[in-house]
Each structure stands twice: as C-alpha cells, then as structure tokens.
Design a protein around this nucleic acid. Structure first.
Lengths: 248, 248
DNA sequence: CGGGATGTTGACGGTCTTCAAAAGCGGTGG
DNA sequence: CCACCGCTTTTGAAGACCGTCAACATCCCG
C-alpha cells in the first residue's frame, strides 16, 4: 500500500492520466500514505486544508463541536476523494468504519501542481461539487425533516452507494453502527432505533442481524423520505414571486 | 448590466485574467444575464447544474422539500460565485434579498471552456471548497446545536460577511427577514425572535429597528455559539482510538 | 397618518432527547 | 458445538426544547 508507485497508479486510475509522467511523480511526492483500522481516528493538519484519496475501505468524516458533540458530515468509500478543512468553527477528523487505506495531501500544494492538468482540475471540481450538493441535501434533512424522513432518506442514499449481495435483492450491509447513523442524521441512537422498528412494523424494511437491512419497498421508502414532490413545492413562496425560467 | 461586454469585464475582474481574450468571449457567450428584484425568485434549468455569478445585491439559495418546507442552504453577496444543482432530492431556487444582478451559465459548458485556464479552474475549485466547508458547518449547526447556539453563530457569521456602517462599530444591517434567518437555521421565526430577545436581555446584542443588530460583545457571542473548544472535543470518541497526526 | 407586513410575546402540545434497564447479537474459549 | 461475556441495540418512561397557534406590538411605506 505504501509501496512507492502505488500512489502514482492510483492517481493515474482516478484521473485517467498516464502514470509514468513527471506530474504523477510530483504529486505522489506530496502523498502521505495512511492506514486506518476500524475505529481508529486520523487527525490532519489543523492549520491548512488537506485532500484525501481513499483507496479502499470505508471512513466517516466527523465535525466536533462544544460539549463533546459530534456530527458526521460525510461517509466515504473506496475511490472517493474528499477534502478536510483547516480547523475553523469545528475540527474535522477521519475515522475508519472498516480497515481503510488512504493518501493524504496538503491541498494547496496539490492544487498548485495539479493546475498543470485540466483533466485533474476538472475531476476535482466535479467531485467537490458532488460533495457540496450532497452536503446541501444533508442540510435540508437536518434542518427540515422529521426523524422518520431522515432515516428513510438515509437508507435510500446508502442503497445507492453500497452494493448489495447478489443473492438477496434490496439487502444492504451497513458498515456503520446505529451511533454513526444517528451522528450523521442529527438524531440519538435511540431515535434511530425506534424509527427502524417502525419501518419494520410497517413492512417497508426488515433487519437481518445487526448490520443488514432489507429494503422491501423502495417506493414506499421514498414516500417516507419527504423529498421534493413533483409540483407542490412552490406553494408557500412569496405570493407574487416572479419567476424567470432558465432554458438550456 | 446586460450590455454586451459587462460579463467579460466581470469575468476578467473575478479571475484576474485579461478581458479581451478569446476565452472571455467564449465564456461570456454562455452567459444569461438576469436581474432579480427583492422577493423575486429565479428557477434554473432543472435538468443540469448551473453556475451563477452574482455581480451585485444579495440573494438566498433555497432548497424545497415536501409539504412546502424550505431550507435556505446559502446566502450570497456581490462577487460570489455559486452553483445550483440539477433537480435531485430537492429543487433549488434563487431569490433576491435585495435587487440583484447575476449571470447564469450552464455549468458543464462553462467548465468545458474554462478548462483551458488553470487560473479559472483553480479559483472555481477554491470557491467550491469554501462553499462546501461553509455547508458542513451549517450541517453541524442544524444537526447538533440548540436554537441559542444557531442564532449566535449566525450573527457572528454575518458580522464577518457584511460590513458595518463606519459610525457604529459592531452594528450589522441584516438584509434578510426573520423568516429567512429561521429558514436558514432550521428554526421558526418565533424561535429566532425569542433567541434574539434573550441575547438582548443578556446585554450581548441590541436591535435598532427591524434589520439592524448591534453586537456588543463578540467574545460572549462566540461563547454562546457552541463551536469547537480548544481541546475538550476529543472526549467521547472511541476510548482507545489511535491518532495519527499529520504534519506539513 | 394609516394600513399592511413584519416581528414579538404567550400558552400549549408534540417530537425528540435523556436516563435507565432489558434484550440480542457476535465473538471467544472451553 | 455450545456457553459465556461484552457491546450494541432495543424498549420504556419522563422531561426538555422547539413548533404551533393565536393575539398583540411595531416598523415602514405610501
């Protein structure tokens, strides 16, 4: 994993560029390879933003607030690229959900060198926007949704990102504990548990052991998630709000 | 505002590139100039992400969820660049807080052409990351903070982004209504109002009319915001969590 | 100065949290 | 293979915080 050259191969595969170039060599020089075992936590440089490339495993990125409160801002899986801010209002740490391997880069230096490659910059920009859009959806969930809606939405989101074992359709194996789910959704583990029980009683999902959840009815689950509905959402805006519709 | 050439000048000023180039011409061809009056709402292309350049004024970006619920995901001021996602879990709309002017671009096409300029890509990437980090902080606020903490944090954040009139130090003129504050913080307007009253009674702030707030004591306000404290935040992590500290 | 929108205050109720205890899963060792 | 033990999860009851509903006050604009 920390064998020299592993980083260059990963860079090349991620960005679709040849691995033998001067650029991949320069970038890989900046890398710090890190392995994070399940439950272990990594702190990055508090004075500057870092860039992380998760080559394998699964991690969570948590923000820490006063009075020991934690908010998970994102889950990441193999192949993900994500950034960790310098310490500002909250400190951010990476924790392994499974044994994981990643490369850490000082963000600024990485960008300085990557600027030479439009392809890399384009990919970074698109990944960053994806993260932003996901984070905004999370903000809506945390700010405006009930516990039921948050849990239903969480299960749907995980069903998209995790692949289920071939033998049982709609079955997902959550790599995180109820505590993690709660810290991601802004709920306590008790509330998460109660919501799962209720979804189970409604016949929408089922549980297999601790970490497996079978999604019987995706449509009904989506209906529970309280996301935007076709065309009712505009009601409640300023009464005479003008609308300028963009085309193209 | 929509005079041809205005967009090129703005692009040039924003990215620090010459305005007479072929690139700025190409990019400005993609622009749709829009003026949004106070209270007016703009919808962008629901099928693809858009990029917005706010040349002047102030706007909010809201996400719409089921049952007419709104969550403001960001406020923007003159000079800001921000992106609006295609319709996914939630629909996003731009609304003017003041009379505002902006240029809208189809994001993909803009990136395709901007890829030729490392400078533009670098700026876009950094702005996107700033937006992401702000959104994460918002997620922490919405998920883990009390009403008091959210309002205190909001006032501090606005004090940083808005400039106060020279004659009265610590005085900020909020361009948004209590409703907007509530929709940004995941609270009702009544709760926002009560929190402001309590901060006022504690002597930490004062109000002047509807939209002006005087921040008497920034330190005490920060203490109310519940952000990360120097070194107590790690308590509560997994007991024996190993930590790998990054340098550089 | 008057009217309407915006903001404040009060009483009550619901949802989620907190605190506490029981149950269940999963790994280890006999 | 089964029994045991620790940790995660579930379940229950009580309480806190914020939302809802309603009335009143205030600001701002014409």
């Amino acid at each position: 994993m920390s064998r020299p050259g592993a980083c260059r191969l990963f860079l090349s595969a991620t960005f679709g560029i040849p691995s033998g170039t001067e650029l991949t060599r320069q970038l890989s020089e900046l890398a710090t390879p890190v392995t994070v075992m399940r439950g272990e936590t990594v702190e990055t440089d508090p004075t500057a933003a870092s860039l992380a490339f998760l080559t394998g495993g699964a991690t969570k990125l948590s923000a820490l607030a006063a009075r020991g409160r934690h908010q998970i801002v994102a889950f990441h899986f193999g192949g993900d690229i994500f950034s960790i801010p310098a310490e500002g209002l909250h400190r951010h740490v990476i924790t392994g959900l499974r044994d994981s391997a990643l490369f850490l880069f000082p963000a600024r230096a990485f960008y300085d060198r990557a600027a030479a490659s439009p392809r890399i910059m384009r990919t970074l920009l698109e990944r960053s926007q994806t993260a932003l859009f996901r984070c905004r959806d999370k903000a809506v969930n945390l700010g405006r949704k009930t516990a039921r809606e948050r849990v239903a939405g969480f299960l749907l989101g995980m069903a998209e990102r995790l692949d289920c074992p071939d033998d049982e359709p709609g079955c997902i194996k959550l790599p995180m504990s109820r505590r993690d789910v709660g810290e991601s959704l802004g709920l306590t583990i008790e509330t998460v548990s109660r919501q799962i029980t209720e979804l189970k009683e409604a016949g929408i999902i089922d549980t297999r052991g601790r970490s497996c959840i079978v999604l019987h009815d995706l449509d009904q689950l989506a209906a529970q998630a309280g996301n935007v509905e076709p065309r009712d959402a505009m009601s409640g805006l300023a009464p005479a709000a003008q609308r300028v519709v963009m085309v193209q």
